[in-house]
Design a binder for these strands. Structure first.
Lengths: 342, 342
DNA sequence: TTGTAAGCGTTATCAT
DNA sequence: ATGATAACGCTTACAA
């Protein structure tokens, strides 16, 4: 059972006492090959379960049909759904997705890009690690002419980008809290060092200013993207002399953790404190209370990344312009912010 | 910028006016090569950013350092965390994980296995699709001597398997409900056609019997693994003349959806109905009330899969015995079942 | 210490 | 209609 080497084109050639090239052509259904032998060979190949060796093809054609996806994590619904969207578009075209998880570490990111280069990936999709400050490792990718697409997380590097408008979306979220009557709105920020964290913070600040509301530094805490990390910052908010009456959280995970912490504290949501999240993970509809949030079109994000890649790849002139695609988000109003009926 | 072909060993050879083999050996640090030229070549290679072409290596060595992971989905935290565990063990050893998402479709599963075979994957890990009844597509994998490891979902096919004891875990969960005073316990089953669904159902049935509790068919509903799909079955339970006082859900997602539905109905958890889930997704600790559940060691599951693969691969005799690894689960008691203090 | 040549599996070009 | 050969990038006996 072990050891059984897969049959090659040569094995078939021997069987038919013909040359490997004949077999190759027959298998590729070349009309130049005698219909009879062609069919015979095809049948036999089928019978013995012959399969083209893709590695050999790769070496020849310089195309691997492999795409590297470098992400901080895949356990967040958001990233998983994006990958889902990528596969939906790319798999039918014969591409396989190779996933590398950086855990937000710069060193891993660099290593994975190197690997992908060695493996001759046909394309590379990246959601930048939060640790990453230097982008030199991506220069090689560009120099090799490999399509490189960044998604979700923003960053300054001259390549394709697919994401949403974090600044605007933050504004939408906080604007909604204001409309619900909140006047003392806290922000549980995402991870330090991420451009999107800054963008959202700016959205939060600007919309407060626009409404003439004061900025209170003590209402701004860093919670990251993990629920566990949000508990302590939330407690700090609840320990303030004047507690907030609304919270804009970095994502749904932190929002849910914040809600739990608030409820543990004996306060009511949204009556005492309204909470809004970010992402619209499916489970948030089932929270108690259900969570208001900003919907990100994650599957579409993934599909769009794939499309940009394909267009770049198919562009013969090599002059495919850099894409910067921004998909619209959506305010989802549920019970966690519904202080008054609207 | 485009087109820049990656440098090959030949390019370096030309530069140094030596043969490709010399370069190859120098790059591999063969002691037979003059230390001086060896270093020169290495430096130059480094300088121009030379990287071995892995495709060529693959063709030579018949090893791709690629592992195919075939899963129903990656958006469930559970599967994502398993993949995480796999990467943790395998990536440092140079393996890359290629992910294929079947969406529980048999046809996709077959197609992906074919692909993986063509791509000369070094190993294949599978969580079987719920549609799959026939396992013929896996025979080729075994015949080619490619290590095949099934994980999570149970099924009858003679290959390695890594998972938990679903029967026993279900018993644990329901036993707990009984201990909390539940006497009319409903079961929201997982997807039809899955062996684990049956195993858990059997656990549920057997433990009820063991406690002398009656089996009521109307208390057994199919909810699948998706929250949305659990709402209607839960409503059916709530519409019964005699509603249940406890629910054992297929997983946390359905448990949370069930809780929400129950609360919408004006009932209290756990006072009116206790609810227990399965998996222990991190977010469930933050639910209101927090969700009791069965913890599955998902990361360890993934790591164990990787270890089994490695052992099989390294076994020169080809007689590595079939592994059937069962990892222990754990009852996590939270507020959704705490009718009385314990 | 270094070069030559064969080979991994396939296809394309050029002959025949 | 089919065969021989070179090529893809690299490694490794075997020679020198």
């Amino acid at each position: 059972m072990r050891q059984e080497k897969p049959p090659t084109i040569k094995d078939i050639a021997k069987k038919f006492k013909c040359s490997p090239s004949t077999v190759s052509r027959a298998l590729n259904n070349h009309t130049s090959i005698n219909l009879h032998t062609r069919q015979n060979i095809q049948e036999y190949a089928e019978k013995i379960g012959y399969q083209r060796n893709k590695t050999a093809l790769n070496l020849l054609g310089n195309k691997t049909y492999t795409i590297g996806v470098v992400v901080p994590n895949i356990t967040s619904y958001f990233n998983a759904a994006i990958i889902d969207g990528m596969q939906k578009v790319l798999e039918p075209l014969g591409y396989a997705l190779t996933i590398f998880i950086t855990k937000d570490m710069y060193a891993s990111e660099v290593k994975f890009i190197e690997k992908l280069l060695m493996n001759n990936a046909d394309g590379i999709f990246v959601s930048i690690a939060s640790e990453t400050r230097d982008f030199a490792h991506f220069n090689k990718v560009l120099n090799r002419g490999i399509p490189l697409v960044f998604f979700d997380r923003e960053c300054d590097f001259p390549t394709h980008r697919v994401g949403i408008d974090h600044y605007l979306s933050a504004k939408m979220a906080v604007q909604h809290l204001i409309e619900m009557g909140c006047r003392r709105i806290a922000h549980l920020k995402g991870p330090e060092g991420l451009a999107v964290t800054k963008s959202r913070l700016n959205g939060y600040l600007d919309i407060l200013k626009a409404h003439g509301l004061p900025i209170d530094e003590s209402l701004i805490e860093t919670a990251g993207f993990k629920g566990m990390k949000a508990v302590f910052p939330t407690r700090k908010l609840l320990a303030l002399d004047e507690i907030p009456d609304g919270i804009f959280a970095a994502n749904d995970e932190t929002a849910v953790a914040a809600m739990h912490t608030i409820q543990q504290h004996g306060l009511k949501i949204p009556q005492d404190i309204a909470v809004i999240g970010f992402d619209n993970e499916p489970s948030t509809a089932f929270n108690n209370p259900s969570l208001s949030t900003i919907f990100q079109p994650r599957a579409e994000l993934g599909e769009e990344v794939a499309h940009v890649f394909l267009q770049d790849l198919n562009d013969k002139t090599g002059a495919y312009p850099m894409q910067h695609i921004v998909l619209p988000t959506q305010l989802i109003i549920r019970n966690s912010t519904l202080k008054t009926k609207i």
